[in-house]
Design a protein around this nucleic acid. Structure first.
Length: 898
DNA sequence: GCAAGGTC
């Protein structure tokens, strides 16, 4: 019997030929320069020809009556006749199949084992039946190109899965219809009004728009962010060393277990409690081994994410380079969802190939000499390809190719190494009734870190403490901080969001990002070494406009695509038919389309507002009349839209208001300051409280949203730890962002009815021009807005990194020019450190300025804060009977031991 | 000139 085997791509055809033939085969060229036919006799004595296609063979398109952009009302594209044909560039492949099929009894499909593979398989069958209608069809099922699996697939073939193929057909037709309908409608309508948009189509697609939506959504969060002030207790101890010792004393910082509070009064009351009895007592000292896990085997998405972050290349470029390295035989197939290696994977021969490298060769050798440990198993397996790994050693690469190859190789070797091991010490202390902790880390074995410099793990020394030991902290301060605005989306963030939300596949995610850049919906902006994605005026205008229409399921959010995906799964499971799914989905999108077209004024005015910089004009007169279905004379335009303006192409430049001069697809206003860290030294992302913004940019006071604009979810810590049982709020979008908030840390709205003032009460005598207050006893930093300055730390790489400075507490837009280094100036102690003596001499209530009572018992304000009771404040020996009261501006740092 | 999904 003669068997014709057809793989999805030439490389697979070659690989399976090598395995099945045992290396004994003949090669015939075809009229396609990539496709070869391999002939041999298999062990079953059947003669085999192995060939391939190159992805899909067939393409859908509207038939000629509907192909021209002005040939029909875009609405009709939801029903227009669709034809399927072999595109010109695939004709040579078709010809080869027709010719090979003619002389064969069995057709065996060797495409990838996924939905697309089943669909491509059906396409191959369709073509082969042209010349051999009765050909017997089988499907070889394999998940890795290893001899055992390939022989098994050849000897135990199965049937093609028509349901999976149908699911792909349904999606293909749906995407064509809705993509073309929306693209023509919005392009024709907007281009008629805005000449500067006529250069290229204003495309809509069910993947590209949600991708744009992620970028715009983050942009809106950044714009809507307003910083919130919080307070926390900072405790530290400077160790004493014998005078004979050459060691320097060190500062041990203790972190407040409450983290931070957003209510000043509550913070102050708690702080008062601490300084009343500031003796810290060590409640426990625990030491335990800890690990930093080695990375997981590499998938395409992970390569693009980490590559974009670490190698500073676009996901598209990384994928293109990987593809090239794969074709040269240096890498395994770079499009894979699999993060687990097959049990029979031959690690050692691959490690052997790397031992000659000048940089990581020694490490590879150490893996051979007993250092090897099986890679971790991830949870994903596409059953088609292994994780990305180097297949050969190559030393003569340069530039970006070298970077990509090196990353993949180091990652592979890291996977084959051991986790890094360390020893973690945690010292828990109580001070007053509050709990604090400090941790230290000693790295014992670096292991994989030696070959994987992309991961950092830094040890931290902590002096020895004993349980029960008591000490007086050197510093006990109530510090103020501010939440920092979230940063714009990076490409790595976007890849992650798309992956999590099912937008695109591993092979297409990078393309969708490139599409929204090519369409000028989004521009890349470099801040330091990080590339951020910022929506253009057009991008914001489109998303904002559609959001204003207020669809139940937004065109710029992932829900609709997820529904399509769900319906595809239903087809695969046999729960619905291709036609039924298409009917449902087309109906759904047709309704969305009609509404979008009827209310397209919203999009037009939103785009106009952003392009021409006009102020929001909600009162813009509605366009002419309701939609008229008979209006087919000008089918591209929403019939109810305003007539095209007669503006010249640069008309928007005269639009005034924005002053952006160039018009066209300019990026949105400049970004805020680069992401900063606050006094905790925690990246701002984790400290940012989410701005509560709905899809239309309006505040929603009732719902807490995460950074993806999705309602947060409440969870409980289940892992064995100090926080077990503790509740927290997290991203409601399957981990799409890093939003995190403890629920037991009260927010200003839930703890006290007193509104925390943004400007605190202050001393009557202040300096107006920024700097310190004029109070002799109590230096207080004041900015030029006459607000209490905040202390921040430089995090940007440079000679000032780690240096503290004082700045205006306002958000960037409102911030004054006040700036002062924390370690300069004569009067300025780094913070307002008060001696205990001083505490006793300043006796005004911070709220009313009068003596004789404490702020939390102030009779001159609301009583809500009285629930904390009178507390001694600033003295560890005296109670509130002293009757001292303090000004707020002096309340930040009250305690300092000599 | 439209989509998304394969692959070159």
């Amino acid at each position: 019997m003669h068997v014709l085997c057809v793989a999805e791509k030439p490389s697979i055809a070659k690989s399976i030929t090598q395995i099945l033939s045992g290396g004994q085969f003949n090669i015939r060229t075809t009229s396609n320069k990539f496709i070869k036919n391999y002939d041999f006799t298999y062990r079953t004595h059947d003669t085999y020809t192995v060939t391939s296609v190159a992805g899909h063979l067939l393409a859908f398109d509207f038939n000629s009556a509907f192909r021209g952009w002005n040939s029909c009302d875009p609405l009709t594209l939801f029903d227009a006749a669709v034809e399927v044909k072999v595109p010109e560039d695939k004709k040579s492949i078709e010809k080869n199949l027709v010719s090979e099929a003619r002389r064969t009894q069995m057709l065996m499909i060797w495409t990838d084992c996924d939905r697309e593979g089943e669909n491509i398989g059906m396409e191959i069958v369709q073509i082969c039946r042209k010349s051999n209608p009765n050909i017997n069809v089988k499907r070889a099922k394999f998940s890795a190109i290893i001899p055992q699996q390939i022989h098994n697939a050849a000897q135990h073939p199965v049937e093609l899965d028509k349901a999976q193929a149908d699911a792909v057909d349904a999606r293909t037709i749906l995407d064509l219809r809705l993509g073309a309908a929306f693209t023509r409608m919005q392009s024709l309508s907007l281009q008629a009004r805005f000449g500067q948009l006529s250069q290229q189509p204003i495309s809509y697609g069910p993947c590209q728009f949600p991708t744009l939506g992620f970028v715009v959504s983050r942009y809106e969060q950044v714009q809507a962010f307003s910083p919130e002030t919080f307070w926390y207790i900072y405790l530290s101890l400077r160790t004493t060393v014998p005078s004979s010792s050459k060691e320097d004393p060190e500062d041990v910082e203790f972190t407040w277990k409450r983290g931070r509070l957003f209510d000043f009064e509550v913070s102050l009351a708690i702080y008062e409690g601490v300084v009343t009895n500031p003796t810290a007592r060590v409640t426990s000292v625990t030491q335990k081994p800890t690990k930093k896990w080695k990375p997981l085997p590499l998938t395409t998405v992970e390569l693009q994410k980490s590559g974009s972050r670490l190698l500073k290349m676009t996901p598209k470029k990384i994928l293109d380079i990987s593809e090239k390295l794969y074709q040269q035989g240096f890498l395994s197939y770079p499009r894979t969802e699999t993060d687990q290696f097959d049990p029979s994977f031959d690690f050692m021969s691959l490690i052997q190939k790397q031992t000659t490298d000048t940089e990581w060769g020694a490490f590879a050798t150490s893996l051979q000499d007993g250092g090897f440990t099986r890679p971790r198993q991830g949870k994903k397996n596409d059953n088609a390809h292994p994780p990305i790994h180097p297949t050969a050693h190559v030393a003569n690469l340069a530039g970006d190719e070298k970077k990509v190859y090196e990353y993949i190789t180091r990652r592979f070797l890291a996977c084959c190494s051991k986790d890094a091991e360390g020893w973690e010490t945690t010292v828990n202390v109580t001070c007053g009734r509050e709990e604090f902790y400090s941790t230290g880390l000693q790295i014992i074995e670096r292991n994989y870190l030696d070959v994987f410099p992309y991961d950092k793990w830094v040890g931290k020394h902590i002096p020895e403490f004993k349980e029960g030991e008591e000490f007086i902290p050197t510093v006990c301060e109530l510090k103020e901080g501010q939440t920092t605005r979230p940063s714009y989306l990076t490409e790595a963030d976007l890849v992650g969001l798309m992956d999590k939300n099912g937008i695109g596949t591993d092979a297409t995610i990078a393309q969708h990002i490139q599409t929204i850049i090519d369409r000028e919906y989004v521009v890349e902006k470099k801040e330091g070494s990080i590339k951020y994605l910022i929506p253009s005026k057009l991008g914001i205008g489109l998303v904002e406009g559609y959001n204003k229409i207020g669809f139940e399921k937004s065109l710029s959010k992932p829900q609709l695509r997820r529904e399509t995906e769900r319906r595809m799964v239903q087809i695969c499971d046999g729960n619905t038919s291709k036609q039924e799914m298409l009917n449902q989905s087309i109906e759904q999108y047709r309704e969305v389309f009609l509404r979008a077209r009827n209310e397209f004024n919203q999009v037009i005015s939103s785009v106009r507002r952003h392009l021409e910089g006009r102020p929001p004009d909600e009162n813009m007169p509605p366009d002419q009349g309701p939609h008229n279905d008979d209006d087919d004379n000008n089918p591209g335009n929403p019939p109810n839209a305003q007539p095209p303006t007669n503006k010249p192409p640069d008309g928007n430049r005269r639009g005034g208001g924005g002053g952006n001069g160039g018009g066209g697809r300019k990026p949105a206003p400049p970004p805020p300051e680069p992401n900063s860290r606050d006094d905790f030294g925690i990246a701002s992302g984790s400290l940012s409280r989410p701005s509560q913004v709905d899809s239309s940019g309006n505040s929603d006071p009732t719902e807490v949203l995460c950074k993806c604009s999705v309602p947060v979810v409440e969870r409980t810590v289940t892992k064995e730890s100090a926080n077990k049982g503790r509740k927290f709020r997290a991203c409601g979008n399957q981990g799409g962002c890093d939003f995190f908030e403890w629920m037991d840390i009260p927010s200003s709205s839930s703890v006290a009815s007193v509104t925390v003032p943004t400007k605190r009460m202050r001393s009557q005598t202040t300096s107006g021009g920024g700097g310190e207050s004029s109070s002799n006893d109590l230096p207080v930093k004041r900015c030029k807005c006459d607000m209490t300055a905040v202390e921040k730390t430089v995090v940007k790489e440079g000679i000032n990194k780690g240096r503290k400075f004082w700045t205006c507490p306002n958000s960037e837009k409102a911030r004054c020019q006040f700036f002062e280094w924390g370690d300069e100036g004569t009067k300025s102690a780094p913070a307002q450190v008060l001696s205990q003596d001083r505490l006793k001499t300043n006796d005004e209530c911070f709220k009313c300025g009068q003596s004789g009572h404490w702020s939390n018992a102030c009779p001159n304000t609301g009583t809500s804060s009285n629930k904390t009771g009178n507390r001694a404040f600033g003295s560890n020996t005296q109670s509130n009977t002293s009757g001292e009261c303090f000004k707020a501006s002096q309340s930040f740092v009250l305690f300092s031991t000599p």
